[in-house]
Design a binder for these strands. Sequence first.
DNA 1: ACATTTTTGATTTACGTACATCAAAAATTC
DNA 2: GAATTTTTGATGTACGTAAATCAAAAATGT
Lengths: 345, 345
Amino acid sequence: MRPTVHDIAAKAGVSLATVDRVLNNRPGVRSVTRDKVERAIATLGYVRDVAAANLAKGRNYPFVFILPAGDNSFMRGLESEVRAAMARSASERTQITILPVPAFDAQALVQALSEAHQRRPAGVAVVAVDAPEVAEAVKQLRDGGIAVVTLVSDLPGSGRDHFAGVDNVAAGRTAGTLMGRFTGGRAGPIAVLAGSMLVRDHRDRLEGFSAVMAEEFSSHRLLPVIEGQDDPVLVEKLVHALIEREPDLAGIYSLGAGNRGLVAAIERTGKNKAICTIAHELTPHSRAALRSGTIDAVLNQDAGHEVRSAIRVLKAKADGLAVIEAQERIRIDIFLKDNLPIEQA
Amino acid sequence: MRPTVHDIAAKAGVSLATVDRVLNNRPGVRSVTRDKVERAIATLGYVRDVAAANLAKGRNYPFVFILPAGDNSFMRGLESEVRAAMARSASERTQITILPVPAFDAQALVQALSEAHQRRPAGVAVVAVDAPEVAEAVKQLRDGGIAVVTLVSDLPGSGRDHFAGVDNVAAGRTAGTLMGRFTGGRAGPIAVLAGSMLVRDHRDRLEGFSAVMAEEFSSHRLLPVIEGQDDPVLVEKLVHALIEREPDLAGIYSLGAGNRGLVAAIERTGKNKAICTIAHELTPHSRAALRSGTIDAVLNQDAGHEVRSAIRVLKAKADGLAVIEAQERIRIDIFLKDNLPIEQA
DNA sequence: ACATTTTTGATTTACGTACATCAAAAATTC
DNA sequence: GAATTTTTGATGTACGTAAATCAAAAATGT
């Protein structure tokens, strides 16, 4: 049987109350006694039964998730994962509120962060826009003793406790290698389509992609970045113009959202096979395009993993516990038409 | 506040004891009363506090893991994940025993399954060898009311409760697409190196790979399968002979283990760049080879995920609860040199 | 209407921890 | 050595559920 507080008390020759004082470092214990108890804990290999402790404490964790609004499929998927977590909140002792904000809007985000602050939650998860005033707002939350985790897009220098997202430079590099090898023999320029350079994740992906293309596939000319604001309509217009302009285009790396427009534009020109297309995030649209062959590879971050990881980290930080960073690493998934997961409800 | 058994009792106008009888379907409740209680449960949205219930029950789960012995890096990694789970057993209320067996040995496996049976655990996880007598032994476990999950390699037709592993046909197909596209312009034959056709996962991978090569890259000649028994020494000998025999070899798909030998043989001939190599399982050896460029891509199954999933499923089955299959799906990870996770301790 | 069976209520103990209170003992100060 | 402060013990209640016991009530059979 695993040892309990009673066993410690017996072993150390002290009362239950004293064990309790040591375990929850309450005052009023001589250091000699404290040592005795701690030795007993060590030799018995006692570990606190967290379930019982939480039950006794009636502990619960109010969290706020700040997510971009709009019809970006990935973000909607992320939101539905947060809602799934809300459904589990009873058993996980969490209390989650979602705060929607306009995308790519630093001002709105600052305001949302301040609203989150007023709710006095134990932690906040936020999809960050990379701006100094946002970093400042995050700092204030942390000064108020609220744990902050950035989600999907990071905000270094803000003092956030943790980033729950992928290594986007590595993602860009991966896309670069796939692009270089998939376009193999062919010459022809490569285009990069981003959402906005205002968010860190897009900038990082571009950096990684450009680096690999320059280092290893320098025979391909890299066209200037196109910014589509993650808007399918705008993206379709821009990509269509691009293909008209560059008839021997070899590849497109779409590192943001708006894949619906990308796919529509490519399919309109009938160059599905000629152009190697690599995109991000597995959504119903990118999945269909992958299956049909219009998109050749999709790099994905598992929104469910990100949300669950963010919650685990927020809980740990709220309790002042350490996080095993390696365990919370979010993988870059690579999907080809052959390894698509079965469609979920 | 979330409702408790007391609230249900009050709402339904019955006693606590009756609520308990309904919740744990004990006998001695009229169906009218049962209905009243169930309506109260539904309207209040009551969900049992699992932590409190487990505390009260003193529930724990004795499990047996049957793993192949030997110096196969992937299997050793799997074992260390099981040991990590054992370290967590206090908080997860599990009691795990590891039973090692010789690899690819159906007789030994049958004996291990019978030994596992005698321990009367709540569940067994087993890396299966695909043989009728093994399936029979699994059936007997299940008849004895013990939950069985196959790990890594499946055993369909054995009546096992669940398979915790990847879709190996899809993995083979993915390898096929990568091989076809990476070898792009080049002609030259492609070799397949397996461990043993006695295990299901190797057979499935071969099936998927062959299918894609035939469907989409039929210009490449596929050489007869080489069986290396997952033994680095044998593998090195066989691969070296292969490269000597086939001077314009374009690619090698290694769908089993023994990557150490594979890498050594290729590096010995100096054809690292000429031969496109795709292997399975991220181990220290394959990782180094990926980084150096000898291996072009590694398909991986996350051993940690598999073990944790197996335990979750075994618990659910032991309690007679349903499993959300989609949630327990194990992904096929694709690693290139660019998206290698940081090395763990 | 009686005996019998089934159903329900009331109450208690337990799981392992947290937390509060009050008294007793020990250590410290003067 | 007395007064004071600090440390420790003893005890009880709580968290939400499980499980057991025994008595009371209701339903059923004859």
